[in-house]
Simulated scan of single mutants.
Amino acid sequence: MTSGRVFLLAALCSLFILTTFIDSTESARCCLCYSRRHLKCSRLLGYTIQTSTASCDIEAIIFHGKGTFICADPLSSHTQKLKRCLERRRP
């Protein structure tokens, strides 16, 4: 019975450490600067909005392409046009 409790405690500690590590690596993924590439709406799948937080220093629009993410300045007129284009394509 004691070895079962030790195993359970070890498993719970491992799970806690693993989830803490995964959360910290996810929050480290963010835009740190803007791309200068001009994108075509037809090649984009969608976008997400990044807000300024402790780990992400800038506000950004993250455009999603096939296997890629492009960081864009949310105040740029080109970025705004791409957002409107993607919103019109939404079902």
Rank of each mutant, 00 (worst) to 15 (best):
A54V: 08
A54G: 01
L12Q: 09
I17F: 08
L75E: 05
D57Y: 10
T2W: 15
R88P: 04
S27H: 09
L12N: 06
T48L: 03
L82F: 09
R37K: 14
K81T: 08
A72Y: 01
S27F: 10
R37N: 10
A28V: 09
T20K: 11
I70G: 00
I17P: 02
P91M: 05
F16K: 03
I70H: 00
T51E: 14
L39W: 02
T48I: 02
S35N: 08
H38C: 03
H78S: 11
G65L: 12
L8K: 13
S77T: 12
C33F: 06
S27I: 14
F63E: 02
D73S: 06
D73H: 03
S14W: 09
S42Y: 10
C30T: 13
I70W: 02
D57F: 08
T25S: 10
P91V: 07
C31W: 05
E87A: 06
C56V: 06
E87V: 08
S35P: 05
R29T: 05
A10M: 14
R5I: 12
R84V: 07
A72I: 04
T48W: 00
I58D: 03
S42I: 15
E26A: 03
S24N: 13
I62H: 01
R84G: 04
Y34M: 09
R36A: 14
L9S: 15
V6S: 11
I70D: 03
C41Q: 14
A28C: 06
L18A: 13
T20L: 10
L39C: 05
S76F: 01
E87G: 05
M1S: 13
G4R: 08
R84Q: 15
R84C: 06
K66G: 02
T51G: 07
L9W: 13
L12H: 07
R90K: 13
G65A: 13
